[in-house]
Design a protein around this nucleic acid. Structure first.
Length: 422
RNA sequence: GCGGGCGUCGCCAAGUGGUUAAGGCAGCGGCUUGUGGUGCCGCCAUCCGGGGGUUCGAAUCCCCUCGCUCGCCCCA
């Protein structure tokens, strides 16, 4: 029979890896709490139209990467490829924005049908924030600072912030015309892929990784030169805020994010230690999205961090505190032998847990020696032994597994008292 | 969707046409039938991702297929 295994690109997170994930989760929860953000959870499955309309029909994510299927009611459903569209939908659906601006965060799995490679799976996890209803340039800087500080607090090294402004839709349209004109003149110098994009998505030619194309593009007109006075002023203001926060960045006029909804500020945080998929955090302003999804015009900014990529970075960071992360071990390993003793041990395990101790109960029925061996290996500092003799006398043996193996003969009341003191 | 690399036990790994398919870790059992950590002994792949083929003979060569992996596209 063929072995059952997980679907391509769907990975299991095994118990051994969970301490690191939990550290990351605890860190961002704490960060977000300090930044006065509130958590929101939305469904993994949404109507396909939400993403088609929000992310943009022409994008790769919508065009070829979505997990889309018909449900039994013949509605077209899609496993969410990103978080922003869902969060905005939920905010609109429940009238959150009529209560004022919203400062939100979310985390959970996302799905994209792509070829897996280092730092990229078909089911992957993101954590992100969305500041809905904030237009002030300080909100751009605040959002970026939260991401930057989160990554710093986790001790991720080799980070770089790249920054660009995409302007407003009018700026973009104007630039698009300029750029297409220029690209058409230089068509024969571009690679085939890029040539095709002149009509479909010219802006994305800008961050082509083809070195020849990049060389040609060096002389292409820049988006930043097409920005209106107002857009340029806004960008200056954001940069000023970042300077005030002493967050270093590199201007990257070629940074064009893949989702259609971005306006003005666009940014990525990358790491040199990641391999081909170097972006650990990506985000930007999306002032048009909320209206696009049926709300009234509302400014907003957000970002998402890829947790698998973060795990990759932290795992190789080899900081002592990360390398030393292990699953918690029980305080007490409970060994028993004989029917009466086994029953007492079962009862005692519950009482100890109710009293706040963590307890592993040996259920094997194996010889004392075997059970003790497991007690030793599980890392518990204490073993409690109940044999037939102890069961009859209503006592237990408390054994110190760390030291010389000293044993005390105690009543279960004495045991509870003894354990509550360490 | 397209390229490159790889596929021997749960994990690491030797083996490159004729071996009973090394070894290590983990696991299980014993020495020690009620006392662990060290040590010693034993067990643990009739089979080398799967299917065909070449050959007297294949884990080792060929073809197909599946999977993993790295990269392209794109993105977190």
């Amino acid at each position: 029979m063929e072995k059952l295994q997980s679907l391509r690109g769907m990975v299991d997170l095994l118990p051994e890896q969970m301490p690191l994930w939990q550290l990351i989760e605890a860190t961002f929860r704490s960060q977000f709490e300090r930044a006065a953000l509130r958590e929101i959870r939305t469904p993994l499955l949404e109507v396909t139209e939400l993403f088609a309309r929000g992310i943009g029909e022409a994008t790769d994510v919508v065009g070829k990467e979505m997990y889309t299927f018909q449900d039994r009611g013949e509605r077209s459903c899609t496993l969410r490829p990103e978080g922003t569209a869902s969060v905005v939908r939920a905010a609109l659906q429940h009238g959150l924005l009529s209560q004022g601006p919203q400062r939100l965060w979310y985390t959970g799995p996302m799905f994209r049908y792509e070829r897996p490679q280092a730092g990229r799976q078909r089911q992957f996890h993101q954590v992100g924030i969305e500041l809905l209803g904030f237009a002030d340039p300080r909100s751009d800087a605040e959002a970026i600072a939260i991401a930057w500080d989160l990554l710093s607090e986790l001790g991720v090294g080799g980070l770089a912030l790249e920054l660009n402004s995409l302007g407003d839709p009018a700026d973009r349209a104007a630039y698009r015309t300029t750029l297409v004109g220029w690209l058409e003149e230089h068509q024969e110098q571009l690679d085939a892929d890029s040539r095709e994009r002149i009509t479909t998505n010219p802006l994305r030619i800008l961050d082509s990784k083809n070195p020849d194309t990049q060389a040609v593009l060096a002389k292409a007109p820049l988006l930043i030169d097409s920005l209106s006075e107002a857009s340029r002023g806004r960008f200056e203001a954001v940069r000023g805020c970042l300077d005030a926060l002493e967050i270093p960045y590199r201007l990257n006029p070629r940074l064009v994010r893949g989702l259609d909804y971005y306006t003005h500020t666009a940014f990525e945080i990358t790491s040199s230690q990641l391999g081909a998929q170097a972006t650990v955090c990506g985000g930007g302003r999306y002032d048009g999205l909320i209206e696009q999804l049926g709300g009234s015009p509302t400014a907003a900014i957000g970002w998402a961090i890829g947790l698998e990529r973060l795990v990759l970075l932290l795992a190789q960071a080899q900081a002592a505190d990360i390398a030393a992360l292990t699953s918690p071990t029980p305080d007490v390993y409970l060994v028993s032998r004989g029917e009466q003793a086994e029953r007492q041990a079962l009862l005692l395990s519950r009482q100890l847990r109710q009293a706040g101790r963590s307890v592993e109960l040996d259920l094997s029925g194996a010889a004392f020696g075997k059970q003790l061996k497991r007690a030793d290996r599980c890392g518990a500092p204490w073993a409690v032994l109940i044999g037939e003799g102890e069961a009859e006398q209503g006592v237990v043996l408390l054994k110190d597994l760390r030291g010389d193996g000293e044993e005390q003969r105690l009543s279960s009341e004495q045991l509870k008292r003894a354990l509550s003191s360490f």
